[in-house]
Design a protein around this nucleic acid. Structure first.
Lengths: 195, 195, 195, 195
DNA sequence: TATGAATGAGTCTTCATTCAT
DNA sequence: GATGAATGAAGACTCATTCAT
């Protein structure tokens, strides 16, 4: 159903979005240029402006691409999560899974970074705001459910605190040479939830 | 002693740094360009490459300029702070003064934003790392002293939590339209310190 | 009979011509582009190349559209004009009605401008020449009749002088800020006819 | 004194202006593009934006180049003109020399055309207005002097009529295949001055 | 008969950096 | 020590036209 039934135009558009999304993680917002995207997608330069009215649109699509993928993954994790009381250690990891994505791998740091780059970048790119709000709301929903299924009665305010702790920890860890944002956040969140 | 005894070269260098620093707050890292800096400083274009080996050096100088200014201000606040027990409300404000700068008006958000833009930007600009570390260490020292003088026995770990709470709150507030990062951080920090 | 009996193709073609004609007055020859025309007509982009072999054809059609409309209006004015001796003042106005169109308000200048833009543009657009000749001949016929019905025995040469005076006056008035080509032409023509 | 003492930068700037001016006569306003100008001048593309802040500036310089050259030529003719009574025939030719430039040669028509293209183009290019006013004023001064030295007491109004007659005649002649604007204007002006 | 898709060529402009003086 | 001059590479975006369907 993918290759066969997806209209060709839609496939090319998708290829551009993916190319842009890759550049976004690898080299940041500044790297998402018409030329770079087209080359990576193996498509002519003008296809970028054909499928996207402006570079901003393409950037937004790339941000959304990542955001959606993260939410899909988060939802999947949640769907597989039985409702049962859990200890702090377990909950902390579930929270990090939702907030920072999969535990590790090659580009762990880059992928985590992107979550904060886009937050900060939104300030100077108002066109990202609506998208970021939607993404943020869905993430919070997921997180709330994680707590619920773990037997913890957290309200929205408490969830917000958890998010703040994790994000604050990560943002400050970003300047380390061999940064381990996940590790730092885990420690901090653990202390917070089990003082 | 300043104008008279400072060598001309040093003065011009400083003018460039200040111009770059202004651009940095106003329009972000991308706005720090040779041309823009030189024009704002009222100096010839090539003075930028004459005094700074590359644009990165200039960016680093601008970041340092802001960082140092913040620390100077923070130190001054601290110097004027009598040692005496304080309630949570008072401490929260002192912390925010150190972490986010003066309560401010006009460009409050921009100035706060810069603190996070540079944190996040450091990941892709390794040359900023040493500087950011020094700056961070000094800030933490200031913060620790604030707690000490307020009769609170916080250790480094606790300070780190406070920083995380504030930074996490702010970073998430950055996507709001009429963002009030300071207000959000105040609420969150208050809940954290006086649950 | 118009909407009902006009074949669909012919109607769409006409819509394109009208869109092009609008762009032509509003923003000049350069503004007549496939995209702009199609968008304004609310038709698909490729309909422009489908109904017109090239952009030039479309431009020519737009020029003709205006030229014909002016002649139709001029003929109507003439048809309503009783044969009777007239003073210079009255004749001057009748001439201006024919040469510059209705006294107008809002876009007076733009509409007048077009008459000269197309004259000048014809030099570099040979494909407009035959059309411009036909249009010019008909206009001269109208003008001659105006004089005749006003009791003035002007020959073709005299008509040519009148045209020159008006056109020369207008063309020179085009560089004024709040240009009043009609006013300028009226004064000049008056002096010419009643020295 | 030309090549030797003219600073190099000024020479290159001049080369660009001349290239632009050539394109302007040969192919009209639309042909004055960065690429085309740079290529014709044998200079790198970016030299065009180095010497001229925008394409408009370059276009204006090209227009001024022609305008000034015409005035210089007109002044020279005038300087060589003894004060003495002249017949209509002679005066007509002197007027045409001033208004249309040298009698003939290769690109006669193109050069004449430019005088009207720029008049008409000014309407949609407001930045040309001041320049066109200055040029126009100087031309009128020249013309007035021509009449004075020929023993004709023309006032500004009469001069304006003469200009209108010539310009109107030319503008209408521009649509002819083998256009002879000078000839047409001569006949018309003659009739006007010696009816 | 129509049109959506597509693109190569070109538009103006910006910029970091080099270099001769 | 200082800078005006210069430019290759790249930036976002536009457009007439072609073509498969």
């Amino acid at each position: 159903m993918t290759a066969a039934s997806t209209p060709k135009g839609e496939r090319r558009r998708q290829a551009l979005v993916e190319a842009a999304a890759e550049l976004l993680v690898e080299r940041g917002f500044d790297a998402v240029r018409h030329r770079a995207v087209a080359e990576r997608a193996g498509l002519p330069l003008s296809s970028t402006t054909y499928y996207f009215g402006s570079l901003d649109e393409l950037v937004a699509a790339a941000v959304e691409h990542h955001g959606r993928a993260e939410l899909v993954r988060g939802s999947a994790l949640l769907a597989a999560l039985p409702t049962q009381p859990r200890g702090v250690d377990a909950v902390v990891d579930l929270v990090l899974d939702q907030l920072l994505g999969p535990p590790a791998g090659e580009r762990d740091a880059e992928l985590v970074l992107l979550r904060y780059e886009r937050l900060v970048a939104t300030f100077r790119r108002p066109y990202l705001r609506p998208l970021m709000h939607v993404l943020g709301a869905e993430l919070r929903g997921l997180l709330l459910e994680v707590f619920t299924r773990s037997g913890m009665e957290f309200d929205a305010r408490r969830v917000e605190q958890v998010i703040a702790i994790v994000d604050g920890a990560v943002v400050n860890a970003l300047i380390e040479i061999n940064t381990d944002p996940r590790g730092v956040a885990r420690r901090m969140l653990h202390e917070f939830l089990a003082p």
